[in-house]
Amino acid sequence: GSMEQGFLPKGWEVRHAPNGRPFFIDHNTKTTTWEDPRLKIPA
């Protein structure tokens, strides 16, 4: 929902695949990933 959306880094969006699995869109680089960007520790 909109709650989890608010925690994503700037430029990211979460969508759900037809099977219900969430995936993440990085509008900054125009890419998608199954990995939650929030789980990655910034270098």
Rank of each mutant, 00 (worst) to 15 (best):
G1M: 13
S2Q: 14
S2M: 13
S2T: 13
M3F: 14
M3S: 11
M3N: 11
M3V: 12
M3T: 10
M3H: 10
E4K: 11
Q5C: 15
Q5W: 11
Q5E: 12
Q5G: 13
Q5S: 10
Q5N: 13
Q5V: 12
Q5R: 10
G6E: 09
G6S: 11
G6M: 12
G6Y: 11
F7H: 14
F7V: 14
F7W: 14
F7Q: 15
F7A: 15
F7T: 15
L8I: 05
L8A: 03
L8D: 00
L8E: 00
L8R: 03
P9G: 04
P9F: 06
P9R: 05
K10N: 09
K10S: 12
K10A: 15
K10G: 08
G11Y: 03
G11P: 02
W12A: 00
W12P: 02
W12F: 04
E13D: 02
E13S: 05
E13N: 00
E13H: 01
V14P: 00
V14F: 04
V14Y: 04
R15V: 08
R15H: 07
H16L: 15
H16S: 08
H16W: 15
H16P: 04
H16K: 09
A17T: 13
A17L: 11
A17Q: 06
A17V: 05
A17Y: 06
P18A: 11
P18I: 08
P18N: 08
P18T: 08
P18S: 10
N19T: 06
N19H: 04
N19E: 03
G20Y: 01
G20L: 03
G20F: 02
G20A: 00
R21N: 06
P22C: 14
P22Q: 09
P22L: 13
P22D: 07
P22G: 04
P22M: 10
F23I: 09
F23T: 04
F23D: 02
F23N: 02
F23G: 01
F24T: 01
F24D: 04
F24V: 00
F24G: 01
I25K: 03
I25N: 00
I25L: 06
D26N: 11
D26A: 02
H27C: 12
H27R: 04
H27I: 07
H27A: 05
H27Q: 06
N28S: 06
N28W: 06
N28G: 05
N28F: 07
N28D: 06
N28M: 06
N28A: 07
T29E: 05
T29R: 06
K30Q: 13
K30M: 09
K30N: 15
T31F: 08
T31C: 13
T31Y: 07
T32W: 15
T32V: 15
T32Y: 15
T32F: 14
T32D: 02
T32Q: 10
T33E: 03
T33Q: 08
T33D: 01
W34V: 01
W34I: 03
E35A: 09
E35S: 08
E35K: 11
D36T: 01
D36A: 01
D36S: 03
P37N: 00
P37F: 03
R38L: 02
L39N: 12
L39Q: 12
L39W: 10
K40E: 09
K40D: 09
K40T: 12
K40I: 13
K40S: 14
K40R: 10
K40L: 13
K40N: 12
I41H: 13
I41C: 15
I41W: 13
I41Y: 13
P42V: 13
P42K: 10
A43Q: 11
A43I: 12
A43V: 12
A43W: 13
A43L: 12
